[in-house]
Design a protein around this nucleic acid. Sequence first.
DNA 1: CTGAAAGCGCTTACAG
DNA 2: CTGAAAGCGCTTACAG
Lengths: 330, 330
Amino acid sequence: MGSSTRVTLADVAKAAQVDVSLVSRVLRGESVRVRDETRERIREQAATLGYRPNAIARSLRSARAGAYGLVIPDFTNPVYAQIISGAEEAAAARGSVVMTSTGSGWDPVAWYDAVDGGRVDGLLVAGGPMLDMSRLAVPHVLVNRATAGGRRYVVLDDAQASRMAVDHLVELGHRDVVFLGGPEQADTAQRRRAGFEAALRAAGLAVPRARWDADYTAAGGQAVMAETLRHGPAFTAVVAANLPSALGAMEALREAGVGIPDGVSIIAIHDAEIAEYVSPALTTVRMPLHQLGSRAIDLLATTAADEPIEEVVAQPMELTVRASTAPPPR
Amino acid sequence: MGSSTRVTLADVAKAAQVDVSLVSRVLRGESVRVRDETRERIREQAATLGYRPNAIARSLRSARAGAYGLVIPDFTNPVYAQIISGAEEAAAARGSVVMTSTGSGWDPVAWYDAVDGGRVDGLLVAGGPMLDMSRLAVPHVLVNRATAGGRRYVVLDDAQASRMAVDHLVELGHRDVVFLGGPEQADTAQRRRAGFEAALRAAGLAVPRARWDADYTAAGGQAVMAETLRHGPAFTAVVAANLPSALGAMEALREAGVGIPDGVSIIAIHDAEIAEYVSPALTTVRMPLHQLGSRAIDLLATTAADEPIEEVVAQPMELTVRASTAPPPR
DNA sequence: CTGAAAGCGCTTACAG
DNA sequence: CTGAAAGCGCTTACAG
């Protein structure tokens, strides 16, 4: 160890008594005709010296970073772990994936420099503050967000998720269902609400007039659910726009002395391990987040930077029935 | 946009009619005496052309990456989000932090190449598979893990956390307390267990003979708690070695019809938002994970690569009493 | 105050 | 089959 004396291609070349260019070719496995004996000598010396290619020099020369960036706004939200694992799986053959955050004390100027200086071949942006992607030289794909104006995104079938949630509740016999929404400016929240309302209408049920939108957090879900209990319409079931807001809503219901599911049923869009370990275990619609991450990397890698991408990853989406939903009280 | 025509230093130099070296100095803010007029012209042209420095070229030349790597084994565990935010805060002045994972389909060989090719100035390793750090040329610091042999780590005061948990239970009147441990090979788990036993002895209480070790996961915690209920000693309280295993244990208690906290109290080491939103809300010992991340970056940045680091971040550690602990049934 | 040159460690046509 | 050379886009002594 010791960064003092890094072994370079030149060192290996000297030890193996060949030119650096040959070492480069052999070590990269480039199909080059070379005597077996020479090839062996080169490999041997590289191993002996502990040569490891300088990725920076390679990148500069070849104009390829060999890495993709993935921008995550909030590592506490378990949905991102699934997107990450999908992205890594798809990228494995092409290089690595590095995550950066836009969290606490985030500085846009430093960020653009850090992310757009050739360190990555492309950027997946999974939420976070609204960024001006046109300032970026590196190709990008928005993940789970279809910003107006942007034409490079992969999203989920949010409306369908709401529909599955509503259908489940309707099958159980619920007729008075409210939607605990996400922030109005989030397009995922808009599509989930639209899907909710469409499904209600399709079932011949009334769409509540007022909107009860939280901010996709547990604290927000709790506050808005409490508000709904005080001033909202009578209801026997809730569709929560995401997992954290469902957990908050459950807390608000408990505080109000409302039983789950005997008083009110609740179902959330998105699934994660935690849904199994709350009480009662939470019924969810599992979204294809892993597939979303994979698909986004594939598109990033295979698409020209200026080519529009407007794609919906719809499969597999799955209702996961747990203990938080049951027929309405009668 | 369009990566086709990146603006280089040479482009700016030509436009401003000066040498590239001068542009480099002015744009980096190097203290160089230059006519205000020239400086102004350079800045103007850089802005007009939309120049953005090539981080790769800069790194190669200056032998500094301007970034630190942070290896995360599992993005679903909320404790890592706190470490990340601490690391980012400390790194902000020096460069960026990029996270990489050692998750699904992780390939050690590719990993060493990816991480040790000059892309980062240093590496924080927060758990994951046991890696041979001596193979790395880049300086590293282990975070929350003091591997035998390794002499570069920052850990928490795990024993103290257990002590605080036990003391809380003892003050409530508990005398029969069990420890739901972590995996035996994890040194954090060893210290938490040792602290647990020491605190019990200090309180004049018996240390259970058998060990009930899970694997730091919810599923593991659930299985081992169920086992403890069947074959373990009688107990009125549980100290869980981490948050996920506590959530699993709560599920096992519910399944066995044991009330929390009226039948059994439970307290977990580590805190996260989710602890507030399970039912009953979980009492925890909040660990200084943010500070752990910050300190690790500071040490990485200011310490020679071969200098031993053996540090404990002990403050602030805080008992957070919620609803899952109460006096024992009588 | 500003310029010219060397060189970081690679890859990749071009030669032979 | 193998080598010599150019050059990626910067930074940094060295000159003047």
